[in-house]
Amino acid sequence: MRIDTLGKKLALAGGLVIGVLILIAVVYLTVIAPSFIGKTGSDGALLKRYIDPQDLQQLTIQPDDEIWIIDVRSAKMYNQGHIPTARSFPSSEIEDRLTELPQDKYLIMYCETGGRVQVVMNKLAKHGYSRYMNWGGYTRWPYKFATDDGNL
């Protein structure tokens, strides 16, 4: 009987933990993550014109050499599908690859939700970058993704 009662209490506690985690995830995805969208570095305000997916799509159709779209998700996620013309700079590698990321380019960055981009933006700011914008999460992109084999 005691083991049965203990099992029920543990199951109830486990259910509570799962419920709290789900609540935290919902709050993050609906309140916190959207607040990252459109955040810019001190010289990145002009990038806000690309905040709407259709405007970013136009940039992918008619690229501007001065503006790079940067995917900071893992290389594996990038290879599974990314916004066309985006370059892969995983957040875990960004500081090791600064020589590949010119400070004079404008950077539109995205990840899963926008949270990881905020971390990358802080790292870039410490290294003198100021021309960037957090586009948010890749799920905002309603169009076909490009893949590592070049297909859309």
Score class of each variant (00 low, 15 high):
Arg2Met: 12
Asp4Lys: 06
Thr5Ala: 00
Gly7Cys: 13
Lys9Thr: 06
Leu10Trp: 05
Leu10Gln: 03
Ala11Met: 10
Ala13Lys: 14
Val17Trp: 05
Ile18Tyr: 03
Gly19Glu: 10
Val20Arg: 09
Leu23His: 00
Leu23Ile: 01
Ile24Asp: 02
Ile24His: 00
Ala25Thr: 03
Val27Thr: 12
Val27Asp: 04
Leu29Tyr: 12
Val31Asp: 08
Phe36Ser: 07
Ile37Gly: 00
Lys39Tyr: 00
Thr40Asp: 02
Gly41Leu: 01
Gly41Ala: 00
Ser42Thr: 15
Ser42Arg: 15
Ala45Glu: 14
Arg49Pro: 00
Tyr50Ser: 12
Asp52Asn: 10
Pro53Trp: 07
Gln54Lys: 12
Asp55Met: 09
Asp55Leu: 04
Leu56Asp: 06
Gln58Lys: 11
Thr60Pro: 04
Thr60Tyr: 05
Ile61Asp: 07
Ile61Arg: 11
Gln62Glu: 09
Gln62Pro: 02
Gln62Met: 08
Pro63Arg: 06
Pro63His: 11
Asp65Phe: 02
Ile67Leu: 10
Ile67Gln: 12
Trp68Lys: 12
Trp68Asn: 10
Ile69Lys: 09
Val72Ser: 11
Val72Glu: 03
Lys76Val: 11
Lys76Trp: 03
Asn79His: 04
Gln80Gly: 14
Gly81Thr: 10
His82Tyr: 07
Ile83Tyr: 04
Thr85Val: 11
Arg87Gln: 07
Ser88Ile: 07
Ser88Trp: 00
Phe89His: 13
Ser91Ile: 04
Ser91Ala: 14
Ser92Gly: 06
Ser92Glu: 11
Glu93Leu: 11
Glu95Phe: 01
Glu95Asn: 08
Asp96Met: 15
Leu98Pro: 03
Leu101Glu: 08
Leu101Asn: 05
Pro102Leu: 15
Gln103Arg: 11
Ile108Gly: 12
Ile108Thr: 01
Cys111Met: 01
Thr113Phe: 13
Thr113Ser: 15
Gly114His: 07
Gly114Met: 04
Gln118Tyr: 12
Val119Ala: 12
Val120His: 07
Val120Gly: 02
Val120Asp: 09
Val120Leu: 06
Asn122Gly: 14
Lys123Gly: 02
Lys126Ile: 01
His127Lys: 14
Tyr129Glu: 01
Ser130Thr: 15
Met133Asn: 13
Met133Gln: 14
Met133Gly: 13
Trp135Ile: 04
Gly136Lys: 13
Tyr138Gly: 08
Thr139Ser: 06
Arg140Gly: 02
Trp141Ile: 05
Ala146Asp: 15
Asp149Trp: 04
Gly150Ile: 04
Asn151Leu: 00
Asn151Pro: 00
Asn151Thr: 10
Leu152Pro: 03
